[in-house]
């Protein structure tokens, strides 16, 4: 068995072990970066003259 050939390594600290666990488990990102209104959308909105129930552009985004 290969396991018998293993060289000795320094023991790892709890923080190091925890880092391995974190990188294995990888939670999803906490903050969503979903698409939002961009000023360019105003141009598209103007093309939709009179589109009822189209959104009103938010201020200063």
């Amino acid at each position: 068995m290969l396991t018998q050939d293993i060289r000795q390594s320094a023991p790892v600290t709890p923080t190091q072990a925890g880092t391995v666990a974190t990188l294995m488990i990888e939670e999803e990102t906490t903050i969503s970066d979903a698409p939002l209104f961009v000023p360019e959308d105003i141009g598209a909105g103007l093309l939709l003259l009179g589109l009822l129930l189209s959104p009103k552009p938010p201020k200063e985004r």
Binding site: L36, F37, V38, G45, L48, S54
Partner: peptide, 10 residues
């Protein structure tokens, strides 16, 4: 995107 989503709903 955001605007396409609105267009889709309409």
């Amino acid at each position: 995107d955001w605007m396409t989503a609105y267009n889709m709903t309409h």
